[in-house]
């Protein structure tokens, strides 16, 4: 599925089809994700149509009981659709004559996020989302979990962490009127998403993806754990040589120069050199 690999498109489709979501929920919420029988799908698609027509008016959600015949009667009226792409969409759906089914990935947008099962339960990454508004943080954590599913990462959460409440009390005006004060607060909401036994590179890709589609007003903080095989020391020895070689150029800048080397001890140097001068380090700045 192409939509599977492109969640942005998926999201956009989700915005277009928001009414469908609501009607779907109202009609077949209890059903498992396997919704491919056309008998169930006809009312949902037609209710989408109905909803588009109605949304400008009362905004009421149509029930499942709305019969398709009434909807078709409405559709024949040309007045209700000023937007061209909407009519096209309707026509296309009608042209399919009830056999239409949205791709599964799009259907999944309207259902609870899918999750992968963790095999070992080894935590790999903790992502903390922070925001001042519930909607933003809830939406983005949902998005993150869906993204994790499509990347094949088992995610748990979002765990609501304790809110951080900061309060300030300030006098409304001058100190004379100290008795009249005002309170302000800032509540930071937090959600924790934990990724379990994922490939570190995939986790990085997931984080990069989330950063690319960062939502406004939502901050992210990730703790990543990396696991190594039991013979850590051996690996360290191996990588140590490499890093030493790469650092050689930098280390050559450090240390004492050969021509300034002397046999004096540190205490002698402290006694004799510039430490003895009592002039202020800034006197030269002042004389400028």
């Amino acid at each position: 599925m192409s939509l599977l690999s492109c969640p942005r498109l998926l999201l956009r489709a989700g915005q277009r089809l928001q009414p469908l979501l609501l009607s779907r929920h109202s009609s077949s919420l209890k059903e498992p994700p396997s919704i491919d029988t056309p008998s169930i799908d006809i009312p949902s698609t037609s209710s989408l149509v109905k909803d588009n027509v109605m949304s400008s008016g009362e905004g009421l959600l149509p029930d499942k009981s709305n019969s398709p015949s009434v909807l078709n009667g409405q559709l024949t009226q040309p007045s209700g659709s000023p937007e061209l792409p909407v009519t096209n969409w309707e026509q296309r759906l009608n042209g399919l004559s009830g056999k239409a089914r949205l791709p599964r990935s799009v259907q999944a947008v309207y259902l609870r996020p899918l999750r992968r099962k963790a095999e070992h339960g080894l935590p790999v990454c903790d992502l903390q989302l922070r925001s001042y508004s519930v909607r933003n943080v809830e939406f983005f954590s949902d998005f993150a979990i869906r993204a994790a599913y499509y990347l094949g990462l088992p995610a748990s959460g979002p765990v609501p962490l304790p809110r951080i409440v900061e309060r300030w009390t300030v006098p409304r005006s001058n100190f004379v009127h100290k008795k009249s004060q005002e309170n302000f607060e800032r509540i930071t909401l937090r959600r924790l998403i934990q990724i379990k036994d994922g490939n570190p590179e995939t986790v990085q890709a997931w984080l990069a993806f989330l950063r690319k589609y960062a939502f406004h007003g939502v901050g992210m903080k990730a703790n990543i754990w990396e696991y190594d095989s039991l013979d850590v020391a051996e690996n360290l020895d191996k990588t140590g040589e490499e890093t030493e070689r790469s650092l050689e150029g930098l280390f050559s800048y450090f240390g004492q120069r050969e021509d300034t080397r002397s046999d004096r001890s540190l205490t002698d140097m402290l006694d004799k050199n510039h430490l003895v001068t009592t002039k202020s380090p800034l006197s030269e700045v002042g004389s400028r």
């Binding site: 001042y132 508004s133 900061e166 309060r167 300030w168 300030v170 006098p171 409304r172 005006s173 005002e182 309170n183 302000f184 607060e185 800032r186 509540i187 930071t188 007003g217």
Partner: peptide, 25 residues
């Protein structure tokens, strides 16, 4: 947190310029 004095803080908070800061009760 905001590097503001108390009155500037109040003004800006009431004007909604400080994200997340609301009147508390």
């Amino acid at each position: 947190d905001f590097r503001l004095g108390r009155f500037q803080f109040r003004e800006q908070a009431l004007a909604g310029e400080l994200p997340g800061v609301r009147k508390a009760s």
